[in-house]
């Protein structure tokens, strides 16, 4: 059975609002949601990358997903809005705390570099403005080959008719180049009433220019591929990963955090052999 995911629910400090959002998502049948922290660096002053709030602190008891009788899974996701190439730092330790990493490039050149080079999971397509550049085939094919996905969000289309025009226009424009592959549809909702059910979104995908099968994949299996891709970013291609053994954590609990480079072995005791997953 397909498992539905909504990989973009905007973070707000209001606990009550977050709780109602996640409860609604579980009620609608989403088995995974990702709380999105947007980070928009400006040239003038240096800003701190937001740190994710622990899930159990944000919501006490996780609600049960309708029809699946198991609690909803909540992840953290960071979106970096890029207007300069230096805004995305590939090896920043702040990014490690997040499960998913997304970028939103604002110029054509940045779009090209993020598609071809940046080690991210999701590339957000702007839906609130007229597209400032034309999608070229080369970067999009490069991104598809690397397993990076493009994200379209629909919540802004609910707020305003002009936004709705831009959302549909930009998505149809994107579909021309990527042919419905590696697309995810997510909400970017701030309020519970801005969320829609998974089958509603599937139907909306048809309006955005996806085929029936592709639009169902856009809320289910492509999202799963994103999660697996995110796992490969943290590990050595998802096959080998490092973890601290329990003793070491006790010994240097006041000491350093996670090992600097996860691909370099430190001591044999630190290696754990992975779950045999290869990324799809």
């Amino acid at each position: 059975m397909a498992v539905f995911m909504d990989l973009n629910v905007l973070f707000s400090a209001d606990r009550k609002r977050m709780q109602s959002l996640i409860e609604t998502a579980a009620h609608l049948g989403f088995s995974t949601v990702a709380i999105n922290y947007v980070f928009e660096p400006t040239a003038k002053k240096k800003q701190e990358v937001p740190s994710p709030m622990p899930i159990n602190e944000l919501i006490g008891q996780l609600p049960v997903v309708q029809g699946r009788s198991r609690p909803i899974r909540v992840l953290n996701r960071l979106t970096v809005v890029m207007s300069e190439a230096s805004h995305f730092r590939p090896n920043a330790t702040e990014y490690r705390a997040f499960d998913l990493l997304a970028v939103q490039p604002t110029t054509e050149k940045l779009f090209h570099t993020t598609c071809m080079l940046c080690d991210v999971d999701i590339i957000c397509i702007s839906v609130t403005e007229k597209l400032p550049f034309f999608f070229k085939r080369a970067p999009i094919n490069g991104a598809i080959d690397r397993g990076v996905v493009f994200e379209l969000s629909y919540a802004s289309a609910l707020r305003d008719t002009t936004m709705r025009c831009y959302t549909i226009a930009n998505s149809v424009c994107l579909m021309e180049s990527c042919k419905g592959k590696n697309i995810i549809l997510s909400s970017a909702a701030e309020k519970a009433l801005e969320l829609r059910g998974p089958y509603d979104i599937t139907n909306l995908g048809v309006l955005f220019g996806l085929s029936d099968a592709d639009s169902k994949e856009a809320v289910s299996s492509t999202c799963r591929a994103v999660l697996l891709h995110a796992e490969t970013r943290k590990t050595a291609s998802g096959i080998v990963y490092t973890m601290k053994s329990q003793q070491e954590v006790l010994e240097d609990s006041a000491g350093s955090e996670a090992p600097e480079s996860q691909k370099r072995p430190k001591t044999p005791g630190e290696w754990g052999f992975g779950r045999g997953r290869t990324h799809s």
Binding site: L28, Y154, A157, L158, R159, R164, K191, L193, E194, L195, R196, G197, Y199, D200, I201, N203, L204, V206, L207
Partner: peptide
């Protein structure tokens, strides 16, 4: 069907208050 359903999905307000159509069954 696609036209009706998508227009219900994309409707976000009713008389200046937030609203949502939940499709329970099709």
């Amino acid at each position: 069907l696609v036209k009706l359903w998508s227009s219900l999905t994309l409707q976000g307000s009713y008389q200046n208050q937030a609203c949502a159509f939940r499709v329970l069954q099709r």
